[in-house]
């Protein structure tokens, strides 16, 4: 199995390349021997752990690129292997129907099907998650939030659900709840640097809306979250980007010297003191230097520096250039 099939297609580029290989993959599965009757086909069992993961990822990629027929073939293969009543297969079937629905009525029918399944068995979390996703995609985020809350009451250790919930809260503008959800994700996966970076981003967004001492506190917390994400993962572009943004903003604010800020850590609430100007300056320099290095080496395509996507590199370059423009002025 080509390694490209082993991870789900998260961006359009990967999805396209996966679905381009779909035909070769599917025809490779249909060997002469597999169509033999039951006893003999056991000898040429090509089952491996990666086989069905590849099928699923291929299915997802094909749905994204609109190739519904091949997607249906994949779905059939999966259903034959795992049975129609398997939780995961139910969710994939629902996903297929959602993707091929042509109008609102068909989507309503899919929703009804989900409700029926959930009435029979409330523990099928995969279908409940699909229901929440469907509600979100038709533009009803509050109901999706309600759905996910029910799910999380039953299963509070589901990191994926908490992350989706935080996204939904962001959509409706409830930033505090979004922060709470992201903290819950961190309780489940404490070393996930992308979650630390996400939390930093959400804190930055909420800091922009605040004023005075509160703003400094939230901004410094956001900066520290980005520091943590870099500490866990060297060369994390998202972390450095966030660090650069927050430190620039903090420098502006600390330079203006707003009075009435908390200068020391508060032992009761556990709030940390805002960092010193010198530290922030150094961090700013570090972030700029690292961003420059990443952009330089990433665009040159050096070995070991090719994990960055084009969009990321462009955004980082734009950030650095905007600063140089200010200086030139």
């Amino acid at each position: 199995m080509a390694p490209i099939f082993l991870t789900p297609p998260t961006d359009p580029h990967t999805a396209l390349s996966i679905s381009a290989q779909a035909n070769t993959f599917l025809s490779a599965q249909k060997t002469l021997w597999s169509s033999l009757p039951y006893p003999l086909s056991l000898f040429l069992n090509t089952e491996s752990q990666e086989k069905w993961t590849s099928y699923e990822n291929l299915f997802l990629a094909l749905l994204r690129t609109g190739d519904h027929d091949s997607a249906y073939t994949c779905l059939e293969a999966l259903t034959t292997r795992f049975g129609k009543t398997n939780d995961h297969i139910l969710a994939l079937q629902g996903l297929y129907q959602e993707a091929t629905a042509k109008n609102k009525e068909e989507l309503e029918e899919v929703m009804k099907a989900y409700d029926e399944v959930l009435q029979e068995d409330r523990t099928i979390f995969s279908v409940r998650k699909r229901r929440a996703a469907l509600l979100r995609s038709v533009g009803k985020p509050e109901e999706a939030i309600a759905d996910l809350t029910v799910l999380l009451d039953a299963s509070p250790t589901d990191g994926e659900a908490w992350a989706e919930l935080s996204d939904l809260y962001l959509e409706v503008g409830a930033l505090e709840q979004a922060v709470y959800c992201l903290e819950e994700v961190l309780l489940v996966t404490p070393h996930a640097w992308n979650m630390h970076a996400r939390l930093g981003e959400v804190l930055y967004m909420s800091a922009i809306k605040m004023e005075g001492g509160e703003q400094t506190k939230t901004l410094s917390e956001s900066m520290r979250r980005f520091c943590r994400s870099i500490e866990l993962c060297d060369g994390y572009l998202r972390g450095y980007y966030g660090l650069r943004l927050t430190t620039s903003k903090l420098l502006e604010m600390l330079r203006d010297g707003k009075k009435g800020q908390v200068a020391t850590s508060d032992p009761v609430t556990g709030d940390l003191a805002p960092p010193s100007v010198a530290t922030v300056k150094k961090l700013n320099q570090l972030a700029t230097a690292k961003l420059g290095e990443i952009v330089r080496r990433g665009t040159a395509g050096e070995k070991g520096w090719d994990g960055y996507s084009e969009a990321e590199l462009k955004a980082a370059k734009a950030l650095i250039d905007s600063d140089t423009q200010k200086i030139e002025r």
Binding site: R225, C227, R228, L272, T279, K282, L283
Partner: peptide, 9 residues
């Protein structure tokens, strides 16, 4: 996060 910036530097 306590002291993370110093550790990082």
């Amino acid at each position: 996060l306590d002291g993370v910036e110093d550790r990082l530097l």
